[in-house]
Amino acid sequence: MALLEVKDLEVEFPLGRITLQAIRKVSFSLEKGERLGIVGESGAGKSVAAFSILNLLSRPGRISGGEILFEGDDISKFDDRQMRSIRGNRISMIFQDPMMTLNPVLTVATQMIECLKAHRKISKKEAWDISVSKLKEVMIPSPEERMESYPHELSGGMRQRVVIAMALLTDPEIIIADEPTTALDVTIQAEIMVLMLDLCKSNNVGLILITHDLAVVSQVTERIMVMYAGRVVEEGGTKEVITNPKHPYTRGLLKALPQENTAGSRLNQIRGTMPSLNALPKGCAFNPRCDFATKECHQVVPKLEGRDGHNTACIHLEKIPSFKSELGNQ
C-alpha cells in the first residue's frame, strides 16, 4: 500500500452563482521515501492540490470529491483535531518565501520549540536540543547562536534552511515543498535543492515538490506529474518524461527551456495563456494552444492512458512525431 494515495481528487471554489473547478479528477500516489514532482504553469492547480492534501484550502475552496488516503485512512474526512496531529507532525510543508513563512517577531528558537511542543510532550530543554541538531543537519553554522536570532537577522538562504529544519523537526513521513527555491537567487537555489535531496534520502522522507522549474524537477525527483488547468496531462518516471515527453503541453514546456535553443535564436514559447477556470474550452483544455488540435479535441476529454507508468492524456498520441525528431526539425 502506498504511503499517500490521492484518488480522483476534486476541488472546487463556489463563488456566488458559479462554481470553479480548480482540480478535476487528479490521482497520484507516493511511496515511502519517493520523490514526486508536480509541474505546470501558474494556475494549473499545483498549490491547490498540495493544500488540499493537508485540508488547508482557504475559504471558500473545498474538496468536493475523491479520497486522500494516508496510510489507508482518508484524511480528507478528518476533523480539525485529527488533522492537526498530522499537519507538521507526519506531513510537513515548506513554502515559497522564507521571509514570509517565519514569524517576524519571534526568534528561531521560539518558533522551533513551539512547533515541537505542539506535537510532543517534551521539555523545553529537549525541544531546544532537537532544534539545534536539526539546524546542524541543514548545515547552519553555529546553530546555537542562530537559535537566538530573529528572521530578519538571517540571509535568504539561511532562512530557507531554517524553514527546512522546521519541516524536519518532527521527522515527518512526507514533506510538501511548494516552490521552495523560487524566492532565492540561483546559486543558493542549487545549494538548497541539493540539501533537500540529501535530507530526503538520508531520512527516507517522501517529497512532493511543486515547481515550474523543470531543471529542478529533473535533478531531484523520481517521478513527475504535469498539470494543466486542474488536470494531470502527463505523468511518469522523471527521466522518461523529460527525455521523451508525449503530451504537446509537456513538450511546449521543455522546448521553452533556454538550453533547448540554439544561441541567439528566438526563445520558444507556448502561444496563448492558461485559460481562466470559468472559461475552460470544451474537450481537451489545451486545444486552443495546441499545434496538433483537431475537431475531435474540442469534443472529447482525453483520458490519462499509457504503458509502463508513463501516462498521457491526449487523443493524438500516434499522430504526434517523437520529441527528438521534432527538435531536430528546428
Binding site: F95, D97, M100, N103, E114
Partner: peptide, 16 residues
Amino acid sequence: KEYVDAARVIGMSPAR
C-alpha cells in the same frame, strides 16, 4: 500572511 499558513501547516491550534 504566510507565517500564519505556516503555523497552521505545523499543526498548531487556532488559540496558539
